[in-house]
């Protein structure tokens, strides 16, 4: 069984947010509730401030604190290493949002980020939070895939509706391979500078494993012990990106 993971090359990432947009469309996300986000940081002071960016999906941790705190086991880890939410079991206590060090979980029953409220414009059927004009074909609440229902928490699922159908034993889901492209997560498939790689972390011959080894892949907030399955690589030069060491870019 594969252990799916992602590598993001910060030297290649241009901060274009195509990944966020593709994710929004693929997963029917509302504005401000992006499973995949690119965070922007202003570093330095005038007259030489620099703009930095940092792409941040769910880390799908090896030891996910969100899973351990969930009182109903609604958050769980699949055999292939993906952290998912069973929306039918989630009680909306939001403890997982408290326990996630990366801030990548979303409760949709909140004040809208922008007006008009998209949820009021496209009112959802039944328990669904909204009814997007474009919908993916999948609605799989057991794996937290599709339109988010009211009263539950959601998060990036590594496009589980795609990767779970990939041929067994595939070391990498490479969007440039026509036979595999339909199984590639939306953010990886759409990344124009090819800064994202998705594959089997347990396979030493996969591209993700080689990248982590060759370019000394690092993980966000490794000291928390969550052990993310998303790795960042960088050339280490002054112009390239780096993994932020703190949660906010500056102290109060």
């Amino acid at each position: 069984m594969a252990k799916w993971g992602m590598v993001i090359d910060l030297e290649k990432c241009t901060g274009c947010q195509a990944c966020s947009t593709a994710c929004q469309m693929e997963n029917n996300r509302l504005p401000g509730e992006n499973y995949q986000d690119v965070l922007y940081y202003t570093e330095g002071r005038q007259p030489t401030p620099t703009l930095k960016w940092f792409p941040r999906p769910c880390m799908h941790c090896e030891e996910p604190s969100c899973m351990h705190v969930c009182p109903t086991k609604a958050t769980y880890k699949t055999e292939d290493g993906v952290v998912l939410i069973d929306w039918d079991k989630c009680i909306g206590c939001k403890y997982c949002m408290i326990a996630c060090p990366y801030g990548v979980r979303f409760y949709t029953d909140e004040k809208p980020l922008i007006e008009p409220n998209i949820k009021q414009v496209f009112k959802g059927d039944g328990d669904l939070s909204w009814n997007p004009p474009y919908k993916g074909p999948q609605q799989d609440p057991k794996h937290g895939v599709g339109i988010q229902p009211n009263g539950v928490v959601s998060k990036c699922n590594f496009c589980y509706h795609k990767i779970s159908k990939a041929p067994k034993g595939t070391p990498d889901l490479d969007e440039s391979n026509p036979e595999l492209v339909e199984y590639v997560p939306a953010c990886v498939r759409t990344c124009a500078p090819k800064a994202r790689y998705f594959g089997d972390l347990d396979n030493p011959n996969s591209q993700v494993s080689r990248l982590i080894s060759d370019k000394q892949g690092t993980r966000l907030l490794d000291h928390t012990g969550n052990k993310p399955q998303v790795y960042y690589v960088s050339g280490g030069g002054a112009a390239s990106g780096a993994v932020p060491g703190t949660r906010s870019n500056k102290k109060a």
Partner: peptide
Amino acid sequence: APLFKGSW
């Protein structure tokens, strides 16, 4: 204290 949320 915000988690990883960026400059905005």
